[in-house]
Design a protein around this nucleic acid. Sequence first.
DNA 1: TTTATTTGCGCAATCGTTCCCGGCAACGAT
DNA 2: ATCGTTGCCGGGAACGATTGCGCAAATAAA
Lengths: 315, 315
Amino acid sequence: MKFEAVTIKDIAKALSLSTSTVSRALRDSYEISPETKQMVLDCAEKLNYQPNPIAKSLRDRRSGSVGVVVCEIANSFFSQVINGIESIAYDKGYNVIISQSHESYEREVINLKYLSSRSVDGLLISLSTETNDLSHLQYLHSKGLPMVFFDRVANSIPTHQVTVDNFKGAYEATEHLIKMGYTRIATLTNSAYLSITTERVAGYKAALESNDLKVQDSYVKFCFYGGMIFSEIEVALDSLMMLKQRPDAIFATSDKLTTGCLKYFRKKGMKVPDDIALVGFSNSEIAEMLNPSLTVVRQPAMEMGKCAMELLLNL
Amino acid sequence: MKFEAVTIKDIAKALSLSTSTVSRALRDSYEISPETKQMVLDCAEKLNYQPNPIAKSLRDRRSGSVGVVVCEIANSFFSQVINGIESIAYDKGYNVIISQSHESYEREVINLKYLSSRSVDGLLISLSTETNDLSHLQYLHSKGLPMVFFDRVANSIPTHQVTVDNFKGAYEATEHLIKMGYTRIATLTNSAYLSITTERVAGYKAALESNDLKVQDSYVKFCFYGGMIFSEIEVALDSLMMLKQRPDAIFATSDKLTTGCLKYFRKKGMKVPDDIALVGFSNSEIAEMLNPSLTVVRQPAMEMGKCAMELLLNL
DNA sequence: TTTATTTGCGCAATCGTTCCCGGCAACGAT
DNA sequence: ATCGTTGCCGGGAACGATTGCGCAAATAAA
């Protein structure tokens, strides 16, 4: 850290005490007399003593920090989740180390390794889209590292998970379109690997079926990178637009996909919702700015973060 | 960290060597024979040895981490900056501890204190909107803690700064409106405390003057919290709309303000750009989704982050 | 063969804290 | 006067890794 940090020894020397006594005085131990305590406290104040958390970590064998792995921090959903995580962590004296997988399995493994070597006391993780081998996580879990999944979860690892009711959200979004009179409803969704994808697609299909609309696989388009790459969306939408039975509405299952659709439609000169309807899963504020406004299913990202962090603390 | 961490001692014991030898072997020291090195390496591999960075930090008196203070992580500009910071830091083996001031001076001070007590090796900071007392930073700077400012800088502290050319950007944005034929151009901007605000307002005014338009103070509206609170924007825009010489165009100096304007106009049923024109300072993709699309001045957030981190490494 | 040099490794201190063992007073009780 | 009890405090060993110093054995030079 800085140039010459004041340590407990400096206080001890200044007061002709032992380091043990100073340490105890600072921790308000019962076996130190009130007068000595006061002396130590005053001296610490005067010298501007700052305890060294690294030394403490070493001795306690805990780092006081938790690791977070998300795919992209610049995704409003995740940044809001992190916001929630941070607010709780901060209150409890933990600090948060954030890392991004950028939807890469390899990066996820590296980050996880890095975090575990940084001796994090716990882990909060949302899987990357490429991840389908969980052995790296299994390993850490078996070592006893507390972990909580959020949003994109791994069902095969027995620990806490924080998700929204994806099935219900998707069901309602789809039903909303049906109620508006749309009948050829397509969906643009994430990688099929992700837990959220299967749940949302299931909700979408269920809504169609219970409203006597047929489910067509050609209406379900997966975007492996979740719209991080715009061309992915273009390809998917192009193929939808070229169908003989061109869809009249689209249900986009994430914010990135929703905005991608809007960008695509604007490029093609198509108007929403005149030419085609759109509903999305979202958590940014774009919906409120558009005219006419977009219907979205809101995800309580911040609350999810808080919840995840609280669960982690219980482990 | 986990249950039973493998230490250098375990390797030493397993091989009947001293810890010094093991340490040196792992660091590939020249004074260890190739055979011994290989033995140690193999054993480390077998036991899945992970060096304890905390112990190393303690000994080296450096933590291998840098602190970042921004106002809001859930602001696309900052999350992109962090992205840039992270990418460089990651390459150099540093880890990044992020904290948010939420535009509160008090929080900023607390976070800074926390980070410095966490023994960060360096600091990247963008000032909160409330900050006008810099003594906490002066103190850390005088202690020799390397720091780099970005976006919202403190000119009184002699260290590196990373900013865009706010004056030029604002000048060009304003001139764009003028060229389009607008004459009553107002600006919605951040807290007057911020360096970016004064620079941008200066650019705005300069553009008006060099085009023979008069500068009216009633056309310059400050939002102390930069639009974090929507009512702030409402109040500002309401007062603009009530002027006898109602503005026909608005230059919003940040993303949050731009989106706030859009939200406001939608609420009021005003169309952009038919009823009122809008240009913004931005870095999100919303501009590309809108129809007609919005003109924005782009800030290279990611590059700024990279640049800031690189400067910090030089300190 | 003796001396000098290199090679390979161990000892022990260090970083800043904490905490288990003591120890040494003073005090009341026997 | 002696024996527990407290009350307060110091010594010193951890935590895990690094490193200056020194010491052997092996090799080279004399």
